[in-house]
Amino acid sequence: MKTVVSVIGMDAVGIISEVSAVCAECNANIVDITQSVLQDMFVMVMLTEIEELNCSFSEFSDKMKALGKDRGLDIRVMHEDIFNSMHRI
């Protein structure tokens, strides 16, 4: 199972590093990263494999959310199927 970790907010130093650190801490394997600045907002999307997570999905998701809260960023962890089903026939 793959999930999309999306990070939206004001650009700052170290965002990718901190998000990656949570991935490493939970043993989520990063498969792909894209980042861009859209309408003055920093947008980063990370595709991660979470089969080997060393914690539950909820904990992983909560850790990301907590990081987002700390840094004033909107961080979401969502199953990739939601995007596949909405945008691909």
């Binding site: 999309v4 999306s6 861009s36 595709l47 979401r76 939601i82 995007f83």
Partner: peptide, 16 residues
Amino acid sequence: MINLNDIMETINMISE
């Protein structure tokens, strides 16, 4: 990889 704009569109639909 899923298109960045598609991801943003979905997130925007949900959050905004």
